[in-house]
């Protein structure tokens, strides 16, 4: 995607991924950023921050991506990641009904709490497990998918009609085959209103406004636990 043309206007877009653990959020990001897939990916710890450029005909979008771990105990940290996001990918696993319920919760929370103009895409991942194949970029994975039979638990219609109701972009993807992955990000890039695209960088630090956290804080002046064996440094 090397861009040899005249410099296009470039802007950055903050994007957050939300959804139940193990639905494939990190895998989607890995496919988008590195065009790679790992069969037994270890769960994300905390949150990962990645960047990736996306070239549109008229401009370049630099995605600043927060890939969250989606673990219950850190749900209270989520606002920190979506607070200033211009886009969100809410992911579910279309072989796992509970994951769509969780996705709907996230959508509701975003609609309540995130910036009003946020672009939300609902993404049903692991399409390769449905047997419909989803002839992916690699092409080779199709046959395997068919062998595995149809594990789909959530119909396209069901998710699609929900997405339409809520005004969300909707895609079914496979991080494994790459099917529809770039399309999601391109669609988001196109959906961001021109007006909300200001030129980049630096905004991040200041915009992470200090909010009193409700979880336990470490008090640096508090009494120290007696160390068993001195100090390491």
């Amino acid at each position: 995607m090397a861009d040899a043309n005249a410099p296009k206007p470039s802007s950055s877009v903050k994007l957050v991924l939300l959804g139940e653990a193990a639905v494939g959020k990190s895998s989607l990001v890995l496919r988008f950023v590195n065009n790679d897939f790992q069969e037994n990916k270890e769960p994300t710890i905390g949150a990962a921050f990645l960047t990736q450029k996306c070239n549109l005909p008229t401009r370049t979008i630099k995605f600043e991506i927060w890939d969250t771990a989606g673990q219950e105990r850190f749900a209270s940290l989520a606002p920190m990641y979506y607070r200033n996001a211009q886009a969100a990918l809410v992911v579910y696993d279309l072989t796992k009904p509970t994951s769509l319920i969780k996705a709907k919760h996230w959508v509701a929370e975003l609609q309540r709490q995130a910036s009003p103009g946020i672009v939300i895409a609902l993404v049903g991942n692991k399409l390769d497990l449905t047997g419909e194949g989803g002839a992916g970029q690699d092409g080779s994975e199709g046959a395997e998918g068919e062998e595995a039979g149809d594990a789909r638990k959530i119909t396209t219609e069901e998710a699609q009609s929900y997405a339409e109701e809520e005004g969300l972009l909707f895609f079914e993807t496979s991080a494994k085959t790459g099917h529809n992955v770039t399309e999601v990000f391109t669609a988001i890039a196109n959906a961001i209103p021109e007006t909300s695209l200001k030129s980049t960088r630096g905004a991040g630090a200041s915009s992470m406004a200090n909010r009193g956290g409700d979880e336990q804080r470490v008090n640096l002046n508090g009494p120290r636990e007696a160390a068993k064996e001195g100090c390491a440094c």
Partner: peptide, 10 residues
Amino acid sequence: SGGGENWIPL
């Protein structure tokens, strides 16, 4: 394997 930066509550 994440390939990015991480922010980890611990």
